[in-house]
């Protein structure tokens, strides 16, 4: 068998997504949390591309493309926010950022 079952790709995507969630849940550095989000997005992209292969359509690629662009925009704004937060609070620990509570 020299061909890869399509479910393997999707399982890989699920595993990566779960690892992204794990990073979000268990990490305390805001930058790492942010990177976990990127990991999740990548996992989803993989499933999009896989579906595009399965249905032999280019649409999945375009979704991936749009996700990438949004991720780039998100990274630009998110990192700017992180910089500002760090400038004001001198911390990167996500548990210290809870002023939205009240």
């Amino acid at each position: 068998m020299t061909q890869v079952p399509i479910s393997w790709f999707l399982t890989l995507s699920a595993v990566l997504f779960a690892l992204g969630v794990a990073g979000f849940l268990f990490r305390r550095s805001i930058i790492t949390v942010f990177m976990s989000i990127e990991l999740m997005l990548n996992a989803v992209n993989l499933s999009f591309v896989t579906f595009a292969y399965e249905y032999k359509q280019v649409n999945g690629h375009l979704f991936t493309f749009f996700v990438m662009v949004v991720a780039a925009a998100e990274a630009a704004v998110g990192l700017a926010i992180i910089l500002t937060v760090f400038k004001n609070r001198a911390t990167l620990n996500i548990d210290d950022m809870d002023s939205m509570k009240d």
């Binding site: 020299t2 061909q3 890869v4 079952p5 399509i6 479910s7 790709f9 999707l10 399982t11 699920a14 595993v15 997504f17 779960a18 896989t50 292969y53 399965e54």
Partner: peptide
């Protein structure tokens, strides 16, 4: 759950080369 759904919904006969 994710793995379960993937395995259940996508049979092994669709393959990638």
């Amino acid at each position: 759950l994710l793995a379960y759904f993937v395995q259940r919904i996508f049979p092994r006969n669709v393959t990638v080369h």
